[in-house]
Design a protein around this nucleic acid. Structure first.
Lengths: 337, 337
DNA sequence: CTGAAAGCGCTTACAG
DNA sequence: CTGAAAGCGCTTACAG
């Protein structure tokens, strides 16, 4: 009114004016600042005014004044794991949101020349699904990001102990139950997946050992290079009757190669994948797989990030990830329904 | 040194001190502020000092002072299109980065109760791959986000005119070239994909018309509900010999249903998908598909966002999206190599 | 129980 | 060609 129609934004000062208190009090009420005792009447007036005016704190101003952005940046590798990741991310977002933080995800491109997102976002914590390279760590340090998971020296990704192999053991058990004794492992030749492949293979191998089965016959499987055909031939000759695939893609490639080689799946070779991707149900024959509930993982991730952000000491509750076999045609035995 | 080891951060004032100029000059040099004439010597000294000290501007402070966050938020639907989207996003990031903006992507969860990311990020522009609901638009307005693509009344997504159907016409042409005259369209029953399915179907229909083919026989295909089996039966009886699938998932489901019904693909029914997902090459039989180069789309997206952000009037150059057929077994004719 | 005030690190008219 | 200064909208000791 006074001069022009500026002041688009509703600020804390506006709320203070409407509620008849100081702007500091507005902050105390809205932030539930501990150590402040606000009378019930004042609190109500502030809250009511904030709602009525549609007040939204300016995040940049908050970040500048407090020194914290309340942003958690999750760096994802460019794995094709979208479907199984979504649930995890939703849970993590929700858990963080409840504590006043926001989750931003980011997948850097291998050859990407764009500035990494942590530089423009100034997140309080950067969490990586895989560990960071020295260059990335240096870049974070340079722009003031000090809280990183996994931390500099700490190689293992945060999800390693709880999650790795939760499902791979199930794959082995499933094949074992169906009477398969000589098993193979179909690994991915995708270098980006290296650590995860190792985790899963290790768990499968361990499980096989516990069941008294011989060592898994591992082969790396590529997508179009004939490696699957060679592996299938080799396995068949070696008497392998069940294949534990690193994931559903590998299961599909192996199954395809077997079918094209004139073998029957599961008759000559049973195959089980991992992740229960949409692909699994659509393939011919449909692929048995393992579904992992990643919601727990999401909450765990959130907890880890919050502890880093707020500096609490206790480590998060042990994570129990739930996994279950989704049986389909590719492991069906003669006497199955 | 003076009191304690505070002042972790290198600020513009530090750079100014080191270069022997005022902090304002530092800003002018680093931001290439137009309308300022800085002597070459001063410029060099500032630049050199900034590098030497490892200066990084504090983004929150910049945002607060300038009123712009230089953040573009791209809202993605939870479509399983990760593989075809990545390239697009990388290009968009790169193009935006060159102009000093960062791209943040965000996929809201349907039932998600977390605060939408535009509230915590205050992006300069929010771009949606699909149009926004009234509730979302209201939420954006409330927190001061005024630049939205597609804008409130504007229904169509930004990529509609240039991209829609670029590949669908190719699918029809491909089947036509292979001698198929009675074609069908396999639509998705996924409500989230509604508009995109319509775009693609429309383009395929139009192309069929131009080629003098009869109308496409459309059927909605679900994943596990027997609709694919029913459609395949119906199509076969109706003399349809070629199926244009909305995407590779639908192509896989249709092909699977045909194979299970004892039909040969492509002998009895040729099927072509869309998007060239990894699935396409792994399926048995392998699925012909259409690969769309989404890099152009990424640049277009960036251009659109920048124009909105900086208020320039000109509309972006017409987008020509490159698409090509990737022929595989599912459409192979007898006389093909 | 509440308020006045300094300060976060920038940008940007404005004055020289 | 360069600098002094106000201001962006918050948070947070500090003083009452």
């Amino acid at each position: 009114m006074t001069k022009a129609t500026r002041q688009q934004r509703v600020t804390a000062a506006d709320v203070a004016g409407a509620a008849g208190v100081s702007r500091a009090t507005v902050g105390f009420v809205l932030n539930d600042t501990p150590g402040q005792t606000i009378s019930e009447g004042t609190r109500r007036r502030v809250l009511e005014a904030a709602v009525r005016l549609g007040y939204r704190p300016h995040t940049a101003a908050q970040a500048l004044a407090s020194g914290r952005s309340r942003l958690i940046l999750l760096v994802l590798p460019d794995w094709p794991i979208e479907y199984s990741m979504r649930r995890c991310l939703d849970e993590a977002s929700l858990a963080l949101d409840r504590r006043g933080y926001s989750l931003v995800t980011y997948t850097p491109h291998a050859g990407g020349r764009a500035r990494p997102l942590w530089e423009s976002l100034s997140p309080d914590v950067v969490v990586g699904f895989t560990s960071f390279g020295a260059e990335d760590l240096a870049s974070m340090r340079a722009c003031g990001v000090t809280k990183v998971i996994p931390a500099a020296g700490q190689g293992s990704p945060f999800w390693r102990p709880p999650v790795a192999g939760a499902g791979s053991a199930l794959q082995v058990e499933h094949l074992h139950e169906r009477g398969h004794r000589r098993l193979a492992f179909g690994a991915s030749d995708d270098a980006r997946l290296g650590s995860l492949v190792q985790e899963r293979f290790g768990a499968a191998q361990a499980c096989a050992g516990e069941l008294g089965l011989p060592e898994l016959d591992v082969r790396r499987i590529g997508r179009d290079d004939g490696s699957a055909a060679a592996a299938v031939r080799h396995w068949h000759e070696a008497g392998v009757s069940g294949v534990v695939a690193y994931n559903d893609d590998i299961a599909a490639v192996v199954t395809g190669a077997a079918v094209r080689a004139g073998l029957s799946v599961p008759g000559d070779l049973a195959v089980i994948g991992h992740d229960d991707s949409p692909l699994a149900g659509m393939f011919v024959p449909s692929l048995s797989s393992v579904r992992v509930d990643t919601a727990d993982l999401g909450r765990y991730l959130a907890e880890l990030a919050l502890q880093e952000a707020e500096g609490s000491a206790s480590s998060p509750a042990q994570l129990a990830v739930e996994a279950e076999v989704v049986p389909r045609e590719s492991t069906r035995s003669r006497h199955d329904g």
